[in-house]
C-alpha cells in the first residue's frame, strides 16, 4: 500500500510539470494561462461556498441533534450482516441526490472518524468514483428535450453501486 500512496502522491506534481512543459513547447504564455485558469477556479469556489455553508449547517444540525448517530445505529443491523460500514450507506444515497450534500456528510465522517480511518478512506474514494444521478439526468435530458429515459437510470444505479462497493473493498485493503 505504501507504493500505491507513493504513486498517488507523485501524480499531481508529474501532471503539473508535464502540462507546463507541453505549454512552453507550444509557445503558450503559460503563466497567463495559469492565472486565467486560477481565476476561473476561484469563481467556482466562490459559487460553491454559499451552498457549502447551507449544507454544512444542515449536516451539523443533524449531527448535533443526535439524529445521525440514531440513523447509524438503525442501519448497523443491516450493515453488519454484509460486513459493510454503515456510515457509507446514507452517504451513497445522498450522493445520488446531491453532490454538495454528500460532501457535507463526508466532512462529518472526517470529523468523527478521521480522514485516514477505514471509513474516512471509503468515503473519500466513494465520493471520488460516483456522480450525482438525479442532477445529471435532469439537466442533460432537459437539454435534449427527452422525458423517456429508458435504461439510463438502472444503468446509472448499477454503476454507482459498483463504485461504492469497490470503494469500501479498496479502503479495506488500505488500512
Amino acid at each position: 500500500m505504501r507504493y500505491v500512496i507513493y504513486i498517488s502522491n507523485m501524480l499531481i506534481p508529474v501532471i503539473i510539470v508535464y502540462v507546463v512543459f507541453k505549454g512552453i513547447i507550444k509557445k503558450r504564455p503559460v503563466f497567463k494561462d495559469f492565472t486565467d485558469g486560477a481565476a476561473d477556479g476561484m469563481k467556482t469556489v466562490a459559487n460553491v461556498l454559499p451552498t457549502l455553508i447551507g449544507l454544512m449547517i444542515a449536516v451539523s444540525v443533524l449531527r448535533s441533534s443526535g439524529f445521525l448517530d440514531f440513523l447509524t445505529q438503525m442501519l448497523s443491523g443491516a450493515g453488519s450482516i454484509m460486513n459493510f460500514p454503515v456510515e457509507i450507506i446514507p452517504l451513497a444515497i445522498v450522493k445520488m441526490l446531491s453532490s454538495s450534500a454528500a460532501t457535507g456528510l463526508m466532512l462529518d465522517i472526517f470529523k468523527e472518524y478521521g480522514t485516514d480511518s477505514f471509513i474516512g478512506l471509503a468515503a473519500s474514494i466513494a465520493l471520488s468514483s460516483t456522480e450525482t444521478i438525479f442532477y445529471t439526468m435532469s439537466v442533460y435530458f432537459m437539454a435534449a428535450n427527452v422525458n423517456k429515459t429508458r435504461w439510463t437510470f438502472p444503468g446509472a444505479l448499477i454503476a454507482t453501486l459498483a463504485g461504492v462497493i469497490a470503494s469500501v473493498a479498496i479502503a479495506g485493503m488500505m488500512v
Binding site: 507550444k26 495559469f34 485558469g37 476561473d40 476561484m42
Partner: peptide
Amino acid sequence: MSAWTGVMKIAERSG
C-alpha cells in the same frame, strides 16, 4: 482548486 484549474487551463489552451 485554483492551482489545479490554472494548470488545466494551460492543458486546454496548449491543445
